[in-house]
Write a protein that binds this DNA or RNA. Structure first.
Length: 424
DNA sequence: TCTGGGGTCCTAGGACCC
DNA sequence: TCTGGGGTCCTAGGACCC
């Protein structure tokens, strides 16, 4: 075996971030909610032990929350993003070969370190991340990414492992696979787990020994890669450069239901502006824009779901241009009389900004808009989000469409912007 | 009263062509 | 009533991930 990967996974990441600035909550149950304070999306170990499940709606766990004095937070993505960056920086002090896989997980290529004392090295990483950032992590080390995931799960759960597990010899790998339920394998979701259990394949170990052609026939080539990775055959390398997005979506549920077109437009244009910003950040333009709206599927009220895709005359990353077309699309799908719960904008057919073909029939001065957007981004950088807005995005934060965030913590690590915005 | 958001990849099936 | 075969491209939908 030549390859070696480590998966570093932050424990209960959002809950751990919130606790950093409230040390008195150490050892106490903490829950972080999704947008609009809807569901539990992160739980401290104490909250897990009390039976709070991932995705539980707040209103359904209200009793346990009160009874056990669980500390509840609205999600604060600015804080989590900043802490995520700091964790990644610490990991890069061990090796430049770090793939930031998600906000709370990174893969490290340890191929060149395999002659070191790996358990000690992993423990070293864990301790330094804790020391530098305050965030507790678990580390799994193995010859493939999928096996590193397996190792990580056990490292996190087993008290004996102390947060780190190295799986390099086949005996221990197989023992770990026997202890891993099929649904806990990376790449096996709910549907596939159900299907596989039906055929008597209930553990990772069984999956490892399933016939290739059967997998390909009944599942997919993606699953075949997973199986090969379980056998120690690497099918996925480290991705060092974050790939450019093929589509970008911004959407939110509303704090309260929205009826009127103008308010829906405020929400949709705000999402369009965010999409434009994300496009500029990766120096790209989009040729297609989709707007969608829908009512609350949980409510016992008339339901309506619709979307409209528009081809832009010229690929663009300008707030003004995307908002203009968002309005057009929204006019096509808006129906009065419904209680809308969510709106969103998706931009797709994304191309590099340098490849934009000008359209002779298009009257917009794209050069001018590009310069305007550069100024807009500079102002935003200096004075914080939402310092400048397009009028139809609205300025009243009390409007129904805005997020409900009753339990938000202050942005302690990135507060400079906030202070500047207030002063101006 | 209250139920997240943002992605990717693959496949099946339809439209169209020769 | 019978009514090709193969290729490409596109889209919708389903699966997965965090």
């Amino acid at each position: 075996m030549t390859s070696l990967f480590a998966l570093v996974d932050c424990n209960n990441f959002y809950a751990s971030c919130e606790r950093l600035f409230r040390p008195e909550l150490e050892g106490k149950p903490v829950v972080v909610l999704s947008n609009n304070d809807g569901c539990a999306i992160a739980r401290s170990n104490e909250a897990k032990a009390l039976g709070v499940k991932m995705g539980d709606p707040l209103f359904q766990i209200q009793d346990i929350v009160k009874q056990h004095n669980i500390h509840v937070f609205s999600s604060n993505y600015e804080l989590y993003g900043d802490m995520s960056f700091r964790v990644a920086e610490t990991l890069r002090s061990f090796t430049p070969n770090v793939e930031v896989y998600s906000v709370d997980e990174s893969f490290l290529d340890l191929g060149e370190f395999k002659f070191l004392n790996l358990p000690e090295y992993a423990l070293n990483i864990k301790n330094r991340v804790k020391q530098n950032t305050g965030i507790p992590v678990s580390i799994g080390v193995a010859p493939t990414k999928t096996l590193a995931k397996v190792a990580n799960r056990i490292a996190k759960k087993s008290p004996k492992a102390n947060g780190c597990l190295v799986l390099t010899d086949s005996y221990h790998i197989d023992e770990a696979l026997k202890r891993t339920e099929i649904g806990d394998v990376w790449g096996v979701g709910r549907q596939y787990a159900k299907f596989l259990i039906n055929y008597g394949i209930a553990t990772a170990y069984k999956l490892k020994h399933t016939n290739d052609s059967w997998i390909k026939k009944h599942l997919s080539v993606v699953m075949l890669r997973t199986v090969k990775e379980l056998r120690g055959e690497p099918c996925a390398d480290l991705e060092l450069e974050p790939g450019k997005k093929k589509e970008i979506c911004t959407s939110r549920s509303f704090g309260k239901p929205v009826k009127e077109f103008d308010e829906l437009l405020e929400a949709a244009s705000t999402h369009a502006g965010k999409c434009a910003f994300k496009l500029r950040k990766q120096k790209c333009c989009a040729k297609e824009l989709t707007v969608f709206v829908h009512t609350n599927r949980f409510a016992d009220t008339p339901q309506y779901f619709n979307s409209k895709k528009i081809q832009l005359p010229t690929a663009s990353s300008s707030d003004l241009e995307l908002i203009k077309h968002t309005k057009k699309a929204l006019e096509r799908i808006y129906k009065p009389g419904y209680l809308y719960k969510k709106a969103g904008v998706i931009v797709s057919d994304i191309i590099p900004g340098s490849n934009v073909q000008l359209n002779l029939l298009d009257k917009t001065d794209h050069g001018k808009e590009f310069t305007l957007m550069q100024f807009l981004d500079r102002i935003t950088n200096k004075f914080g989000r939402d310092s400048v807005k397009v009028a139809c995005q609205g300025i009243d934060p009390k409007k129904n469409w805005n997020l409900k965030r009753e339990f938000i913590s202050p942005c302690r690590t990135t507060r400079l912007n906030e202070i500047l915005t207030i002063r101006i």
